[in-house]
């Protein structure tokens, strides 16, 4: 009698293992909500299949229903049954409690780290020739103006970084300047944190508005020095 119940369980477990562990070997891991959806679809499929005939239904659900009703169940299985019957209402109660209790956490912040730049900055190219002298000059400006927060090692761990949330960008991280164009950095350095759009949460950013203190030429040189120092290349559109 156990055979028909085992098959759907093995199938569902197999689908879970494939989605959770096998698939990430070939592509990006699936979000848990998507895995949940696929498992729900699998179970629905199994339920539809097994309810097509009375016989199949009895094969799959007979043992489950007999377990639930307690008919002919004894020993350890009876203890497990009583445990389940106690646990199920408690689980529902606990879930109800946790979904109705007011949150004790600060509001979730979905800050966009790299929001779109205003039109006038899109596609600007660095007008300063990339010469060793200019890169060196850029690194000098970087040391004076940027390194207190972004760090002498370009890793966002400068001596003044600690108090700021969000923390200063780490340029060595491939997720920052390596995936941005020079024009993007020009916008961010020139207009600073307060230049960000709403989704970038400008009210939280400590990035200075350098257009008040630096010339455009200095900013372009800083950008060159930053890429060189962090061993990164600006993103280009092939």
């Amino acid at each position: 009698m156990k055979g028909p119940l085992i098959k759907p369980l093995v199938l569902t477990g197999g689908v879970y293992v494939v989605l959770k562990f096998v698939l990430p070997l070939f592509t990006a891991p699936l979000p848990s909500s998507l895995i949940f959806l696929y498992i729900a679809l699998t179970v629905t499929g199994v339920l539809i299949f097994t309810t097509l005939s009375e016989q199949a239904m009895e094969g799959v659900f007979g043992p489950v229903f007999r377990f639930l009703s307690g008919e002919g169940v004894g020993g350890a299985m009876q203890t497990a049954r009583l445990g389940l019957l106690v646990l199920f209402p408690l689980l529902v109660g606990w879930q109800t409690y946790s979904s109705t209790v007011p949150s004790d956490h600060p509001p979730a912040e979905n800050r966009t780290i790299h929001p779109a730049p205003p039109g006038e900055f899109a596609g600007l190219s660095n007008p300063i020739p990339n010469t060793p002298e200019n890169v060196m000059a850029g690194k000098g400006y970087y040391a004076a103006y940027c390194s207190p927060c972004h760090g002498a090692k370009f890793d966002g761990k400068g001596p003044a970084a600690g108090g700021f949330s969000p923390p200063p960008a780490n340029f060595v991280d491939p997720g920052t300047i390596a995936m941005l164009q020079e024009s993007y950095l020009f916008w961010r350095i020139k207009t600073g944190g307060v230049g960000l759009s709403t989704e970038g949460m400008p009210w939280k950013s400590a990035m200075p508005r350098w257009e008040v203190e630096l010339k455009d030429e200095q900013i372009w040189k800083i950008i060159m020095g930053e890429y060189d120092g962090a061993h990164q290349k600006p993103r280009t559109w092939e």
Binding site: V92, T100, P102, G163, F164, K204
Partner: peptide
């Protein structure tokens, strides 16, 4: 820069009531 500040609310027992109701229904 900005962090969060909150005054703790007065204890709210209604979630316990909902939970008890859910247990009874289940």
């Amino acid at each position: 820069s900005w962090w969060y500040f909150r005054l703790d609310p007065a204890p709210n027992y209604t979630p316990y009531g909902y939970a008890a109701l859910a247990i009874a229904l289940a």
